[in-house]
């Protein structure tokens, strides 16, 4: 009893128990033999497929390519979003313009742009990056803009008082002051683009013999390698968790938490 209580008090252990529980249910269902291995593979064969794809280097290559795509898109998206928002802070007319285009494009799901991307950029990297950038900039603009608007008047005035003006005031006072919002925007942008990436890859496939995780899943399904499909899904989930719980958590700890700008997370 005491042990169980202890296990459930620890957030990590608690989650581990849930995951083990879910996996057991999976294995039990498989062991009934009601479903074909092609539909619902056993945990063992998924594991074998995963290890195999890792040792052969296949998984690394596809993951690296996905990261290569998303990295480029994040780079372009962040620069674009920041330029647009920063200029909005300097010119009210430009702010209206940015607000209008954000209102128009934000509700549009990235995948809905697939046909357009196909027509404009053809099949390949460019189309995927186009869609990813779309899924990155709007939430980032919205959050950064809200953050900029909520900057304390006192801090802005202190900035002006010590001699900061224009874009320098934006980068030196507004950006750090709005950082909690910017971080939220980045998280949404990341998860949006990560999801769009997998979808887009399935449709655009590989270019020049290279493909990302999404493409790999699609290919494996085509050859009815179901365990590999699940192995790839597992990797996608793992990356998502790592980025959100390690990369962003660290970033948050080093910045807004260290600066006392957000309340520390509960255990």
């Amino acid at each position: 009893m005491q042990l169980i209580k202890k296990v459930f008090e620890n957030k990590f252990l608690r989650q581990l128990v849930f995951i083990v529980g879910l996996l057991s249910v999976w294995q039990i269902v498989v062991s009934t033999g009601k479903y074909h291995e092609l539909i619902l593979p056993s945990l063992g064969s998924i594991w074998t497929a995963l290890i195999e794809s890792i040792t052969s280097g296949e998984m690394w290559d596809h993951t690296a390519y996905s990261f290569y795509l998303i990295g480029q898109a994040l780079g372009i998206g962040i620069v674009l979003a920041f330029s647009l928002t920063a200029l909005s802070m300097v010119s009210p007319l430009f702010a209206d313009f940015v607000k209008t285009i954000t209102t128009i494009f934000h509700p549009l799901p990235g995948v809905a742009l697939l046909p357009i991307a196909l027509m404009w950029f053809g099949i390949g990297e460019k189309s995927i990056i186009f869609i990813l950038v779309h899924s990155i900039i709007w939430p980032l603009i919205l959050n950064t803009y809200t953050g900029f608007r909520s900057v304390s008047r006192t801090q802005l005035e202190v900035g002006r008082n010590i001699g900061l003006k224009g874009l320098r005031l934006v980068s030196s006072v507004m950006v750090p002051s709005a950082f909690p919002y910017i971080l939220t925007g980045l998280k949404i942008s990341w998860s949006n683009s990560w999801r769009s990436l997998v979808a887009a890859e399935m449709i655009f496939g590989a270019s020049g013999g290279k493909g990302g995780l999404g493409w790999w899943i699609y290919q494996k399904r085509f050859f009815l390698k179901t365990p590999s499909v699940f192995a790839a899904l597992f990797v996608i989930i793992l990356i998502g968790i790592l980025v959100e719980n390690v990369v962003f958590a660290q970033l948050e700890k080093q910045t807004v938490q260290r600066w006392g700008m957000v309340i520390r997370r509960e255990k």
């Binding site: 304390s152 006192t154 801090q155 005035e157 202190v158 002006r160 008082n161 010590i162 750090p176 950082f179």
Partner: peptide
């Protein structure tokens, strides 16, 4: 505004928290 006239505010958030 300019650094020749420096203001001290009542608000405690006048220091840059970062």
């Amino acid at each position: 505004p300019g650094p020749d006239r420096i203001m001290v505010f009542q608000e405690f958030d006048q220091l840059f928290p970062w």
